[in-house]
């Protein structure tokens, strides 16, 4: 007597939106990575000047009269951690079928993103850097402006994901997983930018 064959289990489905988000995140990472690489290249090739101690020579990259608002920049970095935690909370809540908490998590993620945008604008106003005749100025606004555009795209993603949950598509976990992935990627990009542009200067 032969035992009956077991029926096949459910086929493993790969989420289209998750894969697409991963590719978009990879492309955005390459964009920021290349811009940071060019930043580092320009900084390495900058001429030298005497430091404020009057002895040592430093790269004449960041001008003497420019002060980086480090508190605002570091606060920005920490805010990204909150956004990531909230995005992951949305995934956790959706798995448990908790629509209200999923919506709340996505709303907080979105508003955290808006707070990040607000902080970036405040940072630009504090630094008061004018585009004049310097490579640093051009590259600073180019790289932080591009980062801003990427952050805006993440906020839009949060809004769309929240709208879908409110519209009754909360069971579609793939979008929420992809949304969280995107926020992780954006946070990673900003961490790199924060270290190179605001910490290392």
């Amino acid at each position: 007597m032969t035992a009956p064959a077991l029926t096949a289990g459910p086929t493993r489905r790969t989420s289209t939106v998750f894969v697409a988000t991963a590719f978009v995140a990879a492309g955005a990472s390459m964009l920021m990575g290349s811009m940071l690489a060019m930043w580092l290249d320009f900084r390495a090739k900058a001429p030298t000047r005497v430091a404020s101690d009057g002895v040592s020579l430093i790269k004449d990259w960041l001008k003497r009269d420019v002060a980086i608002p480090e508190v605002a920049a570091t606060t920005l970095m920490i805010t990204f951690v909150i956004a990531c935690v909230m995005a992951q909370w949305a995934v956790y809540s959706a798995r448990r079928g908790d629509k209200s908490h999923t919506t709340l998590a996505l709303a907080i993620t979105m508003f955290t993103g808006l707070a990040i945008i607000n902080a970036q604008i405040a940072l630009w106003m504090q630094i008061d850097l004018v585009l004049r005749n310097d490579a640093y100025e051009t590259m600073f606004y180019a790289i932080t402006g591009t980062m801003m555009a990427i952050i805006v795209s993440a906020v839009v993603y949060s809004f769309v994901a929240m709208f879908r949950v409110l519209a009754g598509r909360g069971a579609d976990h793939d979008v929420l997983r992809a949304h969280a992935l995107y926020w992780y990627a954006v946070s990673g990009m900003f961490a790199a930018l924060w270290f190179v542009v605001y910490v290392q200067k």
Partner: peptide, 23 residues
């Protein structure tokens, strides 16, 4: 993976072109 690298350069070149054109 590669075209965004060129896009980053375009952003730099464009901002430099409409402003100081030194970098």
């Amino acid at each position: 993976l590669t075209l965004p690298v060129a896009l980053g350069t375009i952003i730099y070149v464009w901002l430099d072109y409409v402003n100081a054109r030194v970098a």
